[in-house]
């Protein structure tokens, strides 16, 4: 049975490819994992003169309400900026910010097929021999992101560029506002005494200015890249929280204790000092341990802000998908424990 989105996607793409004929969209299926965007894969077929063509593509569409509220243009441009660089990403094709075509804004991109993303599979035993390779690639690629010049990539056109000494405050203000907004909710507002204590500590103990302004992926962790059986990484995904800021923010997000996946290792892969060494070698930047600690605690607060936002999207009825509940139920308390651990209170 044809998916209801198929003819609508085909009509949209046909308008974007006026020189071809017989545009068809086949095998549309929604794929899991998209808590901030609805993600679908499909086959696009068309004819160029006498020649039949086909390509596997991905559609990322805004849901009615999201775990995080971000601009899809920022995500689209972040992908596009790194395409063809040392940071592997899928090719972006079309961005649509109006609701007319598919009810909500969306973009269409190349599908990088034949690879895996799930941490559960990576840590199930079959990949044990290549985990060091995954780790080497993971933190080397993150170093490349940190090293990149945002202005040269054209990203200062679409992302605000904070002063080096304002990066931390901008991010902390943003995520503290999530908690403030939550407490003003009419239904189910849940106080967060542990996250609030962490925020007070962060404000009282600010980090030094960023050593450079970098592209910050915003959710760079095991689970958000595509790997193969040799341990190579073929695509960095989920750039919806990308922004410009302190490169230590990205490094520290991957050290959030919940992303150890219960394995006692950074990202479930290698020791934290080993990961830092890989990142420093690739980025040419220095990781100040005290500054890193600040960003680790900040990222625990940010994580809690995301899980609180997920719960809120469900409670308010904007998005009643089970993917909105699972992070809240699974991670809210674990994130509190992570905050306590980073603060030396667990």
């Amino acid at each position: 049975m044809e998916h209801p989105l198929a003819p609508r996607i085909a009509a949209y793409v046909a308008g974007k490819m006026p020189d071809v004929t017989d545009v068809a969209v086949l095998d549309v299926e929604r794929i899991s994992g998209g808590a901030s965007r609805e993600t679908y894969r499909f086959r696009l077929s068309w004819r160029e003169g006498a020649q039949a063509r086909e390509r596997r593509l991905i559609l990322r569409r805004d849901p009615p309400a999201s775990l995080i509220d971000t601009e899809r243009r920022v995500e689209f441009e972040a992908y596009r900026a790194f395409h063809g660089s040392a940071v592997p990403v899928p090719e972006m094709l079309w961005l649509e910010e109006a609701d007319d075509a598919l009810d909500h804004p969306f973009f269409i991109a190349e599908e990088l097929s034949g690879y895996q993303a799930a941490p559960q599979l990576l840590f199930a035993g079959g990949y044990d021999a290549v985990l060091p390779r995954v780790a080497e690639r993971k933190w080397t690629i993150l170093g490349e992101i940190a090293k990149a010049d945002p202005a040269a990539l054209g990203l200062t056109q679409v992302m605000p560029a904070p002063a080096l000494d304002a990066c931390w405050r901008r991010e902390l203000d943003h995520w503290e506002a999530i908690f403030d907004k939550e407490m003003s909710a009419k239904e189910g507002a849940e106080p967060q005494p542990i996250a609030r204590a962490a925020i007070r500590w962060l404000r009282a103990n600010p980090p030094p200015p960023a050593q450079k302004l970098s592209v910050v992926h915003g959710d760079y962790r095991t689970g958000n890249f595509l790997y193969d059986e040799a341990g190579d990484i073929h695509g960095v995904l989920d750039w919806e929280m990308a922004h410009l800021g302190d490169p230590l923010e990205d490094l520290a997000w991957g050290f959030n204790p919940i992303w150890r996946f219960g394995r006692g290792l950074a990202g479930g892969l290698i020791s934290k000092p080993a990961a830092v060494a890989l990142w420093e070698a690739a980025s040419g930047l220095h990781c100040d341990p005290k500054a890193l600690h600040w960003w680790e605690l900040f990222n625990c607060v940010k994580g809690q802000g995301i899980w609180v936002g997920s719960a809120r999207a469900f409670i308010d009825g904007g998005n009643r998908e089970p993917i909105m509940v699972y992070p809240a139920w699974w991670l809210l308390n674990a994130q509190d424990r992570a905050i306590l651990e980073v603060m030396g209170r667990l």
């Binding site: 542990i194 674990a334 994130q335 424990r337 306590l340």
Partner: peptide, 19 residues
């Protein structure tokens, strides 16, 4: 207060908790 905050996370601990 910190002792109570720590205890609160232990009361809520799930078998699948990551931390």
């Amino acid at each position: 207060i910190w002792a109570e905050l720590k205890a609160s996370t232990e009361r809520r601990l799930l078998s699948v908790s990551l931390v």
